[in-house]
């Protein structure tokens, strides 16, 4: 800053310092003013856009009807406790399936990257698994497993719809998550594995202590992304007639009253879980955190 003034003749040291200080204050004032103006513009444009949008909907000819069927406060108050209670089942299914998916995906990813010739069948199996289960729509898988397994009539196999639905979800998401892990493992520079080997680690020690911890850190954000999707897809197991599942409960309510407000209550509950997860994902992915 001081250098700027040195081009022209200075009357003395003290005045030069004052002008430098003045210039700084001036710059700060302009910057503050700009920031204020920016905030005002943002606020006004938000009000105009959102207000216009709301006005458009509220003045639409069918609004009264829509409000009655989707946003009825009385219906909402009536069904919300019931849907909330049912949502607890969704959360439990989600949490169990999530843990299974994390383990299954990792095992499949490592199996796919195994190089030993003796492990060829394992590698093959892992490839077929990811190809098939990633390629089949989740809802189809839920039908196939949910209705197919009990139809086999075999002893010892689960018949509970909620368990079968959970298995189908785990198999479907396990395939996605395996690919996420695999991408993470492959993104770690081969020099890391070699450095591990060079200090005397075995291949599996180098994987466990050197490559895997770095890969898991790297795939956190995409994994979280898959979990947001999984959280929503828990609703799919309602097709098996899982009693007490939030979407199912809301659906039954909606069908008995010809009012869709219960579904909205369920949607709100899903958002209560998925939005915090999305923010967590943002935080995880933020450049500030990456430096830490």
């Amino acid at each position: 800053m001081a250098e700027r003034g040195s081009g022209r003749p200075d009357p003395g040291v003290a005045p030069a310092a004052t002008t430098a200080r003045d210039r700084r204050l001036e710059r700060e004032a302009v910057r503050r003013q700009r920031a204020r103006r920016g905030a005002t513009i943002a606020a006004v444009s938000t009000i105009v856009v959102l207000g216009g949008f709301t006005a458009l909907i509220l003045t639409s000819p069918g609004w009264d009807e829509v409000q009655r069927t989707f946003f009825s406060p009385e219906d909402f108050a009536e069904v919300f406790p019931e849907v909330l209670e049912a949502f607890w089942l969704d959360i439990r299914v989600f949490m169990v399936v999530e843990v299974v998916v994390l383990v299954l995906g990792l095992v499949v990813a490592i199996a796919r990257l195994a190089k030993a010739p003796a492990l060829f069948p394992v590698r093959m199996l892992a490839v077929v698994y990811t190809d098939v289960f990633r390629g089949v729509p989740t809802i189809l898988l839920i039908y196939l497993i949910g209705f197919g397994i009990p139809a086999l009539d075999l002893e010892g196999l689960p018949t509970e719809p909620v368990v079968l639905g959970g298995i189908a979800l785990a198999l479907s998401y396990g395939a996605y998550v395996a690919e996420v892990y695999r991408a993470g493992l492959r993104s770690i520079h081969p020099g890391q594995r070699e450095a591990g080997l060079s200090i005397g680690l075995t291949e599996s020690q180098a994987m466990r202590h050197v490559v895997l911890p770095q890969a898991v850190r790297r795939v956190g954000p995409p994994l979280l992304n898959d979990f947001i999707a999984l959280q929503k897809d828990v609703a799919l197991i309602s097709v098996l007639g899982v009693a007490g599942e939030a979407f199912r409960v809301a659906q039954i309510e909606a069908q008995s009253t010809f009012n869709y407000t219960p579904l909205l209550a369920a949607a709100l509950l899903y958002l209560c879980i998925t939005i915090p997860m999305a923010r967590l994902l943002d935080w995880w992915d933020s450049p500030e955190r990456a430096r830490g």
């Binding site: 020099g191 890391q192 060079s198 005397g200 680690l201 911890p213």
Partner: peptide, 19 residues
């Protein structure tokens, strides 16, 4: 593994474990 334990290698790109 036994052989590598008797040798110390330093790489051009350091290859330290960043985690």
């Amino acid at each position: 593994v036994g052989v590598r334990r008797k040798l110390g290698v330093v790489f051009q790109a350091y290859n330290l474990f960043p985690h």
